[in-house]
Design a protein around this nucleic acid. Sequence first.
DNA 1: CCGGTTTGACTGAACATTCAGTCTAGATTC
DNA 2: GAATCTAGACTGAATGTTCAGTCAAACCGG
Lengths: 212, 212
Amino acid sequence: MAQGTLDGQHGEGRREQLLRSALEVIVSRGYADTRIADVAEHAGTSPALVIYYFKTRDQLLTEALRYSEDAWYAAGTQRLAAIPTAVGRLTGLIAMTCPPDTDPAARSEWLLWLDLWALSPRNPGVAAVRRKFDERWRQAIVTTVLAGQETGEFDTAVDAGSFAVTLSALLDGLAVQIALEDTDVPPSRAYELAMDFAAGQLGFSLDDERAG
Amino acid sequence: MAQGTLDGQHGEGRREQLLRSALEVIVSRGYADTRIADVAEHAGTSPALVIYYFKTRDQLLTEALRYSEDAWYAAGTQRLAAIPTAVGRLTGLIAMTCPPDTDPAARSEWLLWLDLWALSPRNPGVAAVRRKFDERWRQAIVTTVLAGQETGEFDTAVDAGSFAVTLSALLDGLAVQIALEDTDVPPSRAYELAMDFAAGQLGFSLDDERAG
DNA sequence: CCGGTTTGACTGAACATTCAGTCTAGATTC
DNA sequence: GAATCTAGACTGAATGTTCAGTCAAACCGG
């Protein structure tokens, strides 16, 4: 009986399916409590197949984290690239962390980050993912700030590097609150606070962004 | 052979000794990889004794986290209480997160936080520790800001609540960098950035604090 | 000798990983 | 175009280890 799409996964397709399954299990159970059997069951297959594609459990989970971060970053920056103003792009960057609307996928992403941070100190592979990602993220902020200073949208007295470190730290901290669903800091509040900070530092008005 | 302090642990003393052992193991191995046997060995006793004092592994580890956070907070606020000016106390609050000197214990504390965050979404006990702690911490900031506004040290236009949420998020984010030893954000830089933010928002000069 | 404390020896379950193959589709040969 | 071969995809049933938690006995201070 030809079930086509469901059974007919091969090679690379299967790999990605397993990575996505792993991610969903990690989000719901947490990295530490994610068993190979869970991932296999979620993907409708056997534990042995999972090991067939990824030699070890650790390799599977680490690769899943990398896969998720890459996908998130790629999707985000692609969306941003289409925005003409620096103010708009910076706003987009902030919205990626603090979705003004209630985006269910965003919390998942941040739950993964919490595991990623906790793993980093003792897992070199995970640490590398984190470092690279942080670097790219800060660089994205720096680039946007410099562009905005060029066009006169932003105050030129601000040091882009320091601003990037500060803003990314602030966003990380707010993301923790969002991930843990702190009632005092819903995503909308986090968004406002981050925007207030950015607008205050860079000297643009919040209306600029609404108008643009 | 009377080794007094080392052997003669009973009841409550033994409990605390085990909690401290648990903390050291968690810091070095991570929460997920901390075994009862590790804690027992570190404390120079048997796994069975650990279970005798704490019914389950989870109870041991959860209680250890609570113990650590309480101790850290208590020690910190006690030190701060002695400082006369609001600027000084706020500086102290920031220094608790970003030790200007290289305090080895501080990184341990933050490594524990990373585990605590990662655990929170699925472990109600840990989530409660975190929530209570975050609340106390923000409250400490609010109290300090209001006091400083009272004495005229701080700009009265700032909303203490929003400032507290923002500053604590920023400190959390910087703490992640410190815990993970990001080379771009050493503790001294984190300290400077946080102080710049606070001084800018509240309108006090960084010299006030050096003078005080 | 009583009660809290401590231990070594065990048990049972959970799991990652291995193994020895089966099945299928496509290539190769005649 | 049938027969044979090959390789990759996939599986069920072991295997062996690691651990949390149990238990019954020993220890010891008062």
